[in-house]
């Protein structure tokens, strides 16, 4: 893991009226790391992530993502990142091939690039026989893997995964994390939100958000030592109690 910053967040805040969703957070993410962005529902992690992917304007503070400022160069940020939302984000009434062509197309890939990528992706996932099947007919686990691959079509420097493993079985989750490792190994930075604490163990570093603030930012191993516990789940509980 290099020390080259790929995300640099400084004093970032987002207010909705009187409600402070994200309260003055600062952190860095390094190139090629798997960065876990943790927090309970309503802690502000989704709002923070939306600012980083350029679809929500910060109230104050700055953030540089893949060398572009989210305040002023949101469009450039979008070109250089991949995104997979927590709701399964492909079209059920399109075939696998049509989905790949569509998403490749909106990221500006040429016809040949799309062809190449499709072939590669299909053989990686073992979907040769399903190419012309509607995505809606696939099991959820496959949809999720496909969704992840599609988010990587344009070879982004960072990929943002918003609770990617919600609702899938443990085996598929395991396989999904293997895909994430393989991608990180190629040098892609992974920014992942999750509320499965066992998944937090797979991350290089995790940040834990509580009520709009980042309360902890460390490797899972150091966090466990610091709080003298054996699992990330206990770390999380201790942190949440402290704030209350």
């Amino acid at each position: 893991m290099s020390q080259e910053k790929i995300i640099a967040v400084k004093n970032l805040s987002k207010k909705f009226g009187n409600f402070i969703a994200v309260n003055d957070i600062s952190f860095d993410v390094y190139k090629g790391e798997i960065f876990g962005f943790l927090g309970a529902n309503g802690a502000g992690k989704t709002t923070a992530m939306k600012m980083l992917i350029g679809i929500s304007k910060p109230t104050s503070g700055e953030a540089v993502v893949a060398d572009f400022d989210v305040n002023f160069q949101a469009e450039m940020v979008k070109k250089n990142i991949g995104y997979m939302s927590q709701k399964f984000s492909m079209y059920d009434d399109l075939t696998i091939k049509e989905n790949i062509t569509f998403f490749g197309g909106i990221y500006g890939l040429s016809r040949n690039q799309i062809k190449e990528k499709t072939a590669q992706l299909i053989s990686d996932l073992g979907l040769e026989n399903e190419l012309n099947k509607l995505v809606g007919d696939l099991p959820l686990g496959w949809k999720q893997k496909l969704s992840f691959s599609v988010a990587l079509l344009h070879e982004p420097k960072i990929v943002f995964l918003d609770e990617p493993t919600g609702g899938v079985d443990p085996i598929t989750r395991r396989q999904f994390w293997e895909m994430i490792y393989a991608e990180a190994h190629k040098g892609t930075t992974i920014f992942v939100t999750t509320h499965y604490m066992d998944e937090a163990e797979y991350c290089d570093r995790v940040s834990i958000m509580v009520e709009g603030k980042i309360e902890a930012l460390e490797s899972p191993k150091n966090l466990k030592q610091q709080y003298k516990v054996t699992s990330m789940n206990e770390v999380f509980l201790k942190l949440a109690r402290n704030v209350e």
């Binding site: 350029g54 679809i55 469009e75 927590q86 709701k87």
Partner: peptide, 14 residues
């Protein structure tokens, strides 16, 4: 509703 709008807005399409 399907969540694809979010994906479209994160894409380079304006």
């Amino acid at each position: 509703e399907l969540g694809t709008m979010e994906v479209l807005l994160v894409s380079p399409l304006n």
